[in-house]
Design a binder for these strands. Structure first.
Lengths: 335, 335
DNA sequence: GCGAGTTTTGCACGCGTTTGCAAGAAACTG
DNA sequence: CAGTTTCTTGCAAACGCGTGCAAAACTCGC
């Protein structure tokens, strides 16, 4: 490969006229080394361009400093936002993020976790899909921490962080009721992700409790196009809904665009719309979408704080449920 | 830390009743090992949940399989898209992506590259910012490949991949001319990134060659808000422009929204708009933005193919310039 | 059954670290 | 100044793996 190689601690030691251990100790916080040797080592390291080999260090310490982020559809606004938050906070915690992309195929998450094991990641954060139980066991047995975000698995061991989707769904229903809407609709995807299911259930249950009729339609993925198609389906019904809760902001944008362009409906006077995720586009003038913000910063903080703790050996940590924050904009009347 | 540890090749060897080397050879493609031992090793490995330690392997082979992606503003649609493409193709090539977030602060990219060196990354791909010359030298000396995407640095060594922004700018100008526009404008950010500068220059030069007047305004970052502000500034001029080329799609979206809402202008009949990047939102019904698609797939392919080659030792590879593809939608008249 | 040729296997070393241990130096105590 | 404590430092053993080398096992032709 490369003709020249990375410079090792050995060479630094030679140049500084000390032993290899002295070099190591210089770069190990809390190790005992005199001020003078430290200076000489640092000088030699600087001149040679030496940097501690974290591969070797990880080998020794059984702690690589690597955290795997396992996620599909990175390019999606919501996913990209949580990715950003996680990598940022990981860096501040002195860790480094390894990004693994998954797809919808079977075993995709499992393969990602195998990769995490190969690189001896200290932990893996799973944002998409659900790993096989056996792999989870293998990770835990190997001493690798696992964080499931909005995955809603029930086996103990991993840290599970969820957003209170049901509550959010219920709050939307009451908001629609206050706006005087009578015929509610829920526009969902066919993905069947637990969080999407909870949103739907919470919404439907609250609507029923309020004595409002509610219809559910499901189609495709969680993107813009699905929102358009669902608008076609819902807005052509004999009893046209006057309020729709879309499972994601992307779907809401597609829904609104179709509602305006193809059905000539005005939002919110003729149709109230709500979304979920508070992606950047929700605040754009063309949408001004009322939606829920997931507390991505707190989610990331909980996850990363837990990685620093030593509470292993138990049945795993308690699951955490965080509330979504309602972001009120102009796509619902009143407010 | 963890009570139990990762399982090593030693344990697999014991269980399979072979030597540790046999285990190693089983997992090394092209090594000589009999079919029978191979099977026994694979069986034992499966039962124990063994996975080769890539940290140790990287130590031996001087090849970690890690590629660092150095980028700021991951949550931005364009950045997220190229990130997605890079991680996907890296995985297909058997590499793994390490994601490092930078900010605007001084030395942010340099710190990221230091991190890449610590983890003995085989290569680093820089998507934002510009590293210091000395760090670049250190990377190259250490045998680490460097890819600069749209960074436009002039020192040899790294692979430089650029999009032909000037050409794109010039094509927009002629498109505006064909649409009968007379008073052109360029809405740029203050970032001053080389690619943004080239877009502006190409556009202005072509407009001048066509005998059209053109005005340039610059403000803020490359996001939606900057587009809004620039609309305020440009559309309140005594001689209002009838066509505007925005440096990015995000700015174009902000510009269009402001033009419609606050100035009541219709696109494209009263105002033609073009953008750059072809983010997903550009295709949304609210925008239908004519824009340029960067060939992210080809960019990623060039970068990753080069990582597989052995052409070190020279003055570095030839810089690559790729054309941007014009995506024609309805924000410009005619077509 | 024997020798030549081929494949497989085990041993031992090296990769760049960290770290326990013991020896040496320095500082402090009485 | 001897005795004791505190720091500092080098040695050597790990960590989990790849691989050159030589011994061992196997294959084949006769």
């Amino acid at each position: 490969m490369a003709s020249k190689l990375f410079v090792s601690a050995q060479e630094v030691a030679r140049r500084a006229g000390v032993s290899r251990s002295a070099v190591s100790r210089t770069f190990t916080p809390g190790a005992s080394v005199s001020a003078e040797t430290r200076q000489r080592v640092l000088k030699a390291a600087e001149e040679l361009g030496y940097h501690v080999n974290h591969l070797a260090r990880g080998l020794m310490r059984n702690e690589s400093g690597i955290v795997c982020l396992i996620v599909s559809d990175v390019a999606t606004p919501y996913r990209a936002a949580v990715l950003r938050e996680l990598t940022l906070q990981l860096q501040n915690a002195g860790k480094v993020a390894m990004l693994i992309n998954t797809d919808r195929s079977d075993g995709s998450v499992d393969r990602a976790l195998h990769q995490a094991i190969r690189y001896r990641a200290d932990a893996s954060v799973i944002l998409s899909g659900l790993p096989d139980k056996s792999i989870v066991q293998l990770c835990l047995r190997s001493g690798q921490r696992l964080v499931l975000i909005n995955r809603d698995d029930d086996q103990p061991g991993p840290l599970r962080i969820n957003v209170d989707d049901a509550d959010a769904g219920s709050r939307v229903a009451t908001a629609f009721a206050r706006a005087g809407c009578r015929r509610l609709a829920f526009a969902n995807s066919l993905a069947g992700t637990p969080s999407l299911v909870r949103r739907e259930k919470g919404f439907v249950a609250a609507a029923a409790a309020l004595g409002l009729q509610v219809v559910v339609e499901r189609y495709g993925a969680t993107g813009y196009e699905a929102g358009q198609v669902l608008a076609q389906r819902l807005l052509t019904r004999s009893e046209r809904p006057d309020a729709v809760f879309c499972a994601t902001d992307l779907m809401a944008c597609g829904f609104m665009d179709a509602a305006r362009r193809q059905f000539g409906l005005a939002v919110p006077s003729q149709l109230c719309v709500a979304g979920f995720d508070n992606i950047e586009q929700a605040s754009w003038l063309s949408y001004e979408l009322t939606t829920f913000a997931q507390p991505v910063d707190r989610i990331a903080k909980y996850a990363i704080d837990w990685l620093g703790t030593d509470d292993s050996g138990e049945d795993g940590p308690e699951p955490i449920t965080l509330p979504a924050e309602l972001i009120w904009r102009r796509s619902i009347r009143g407010g």
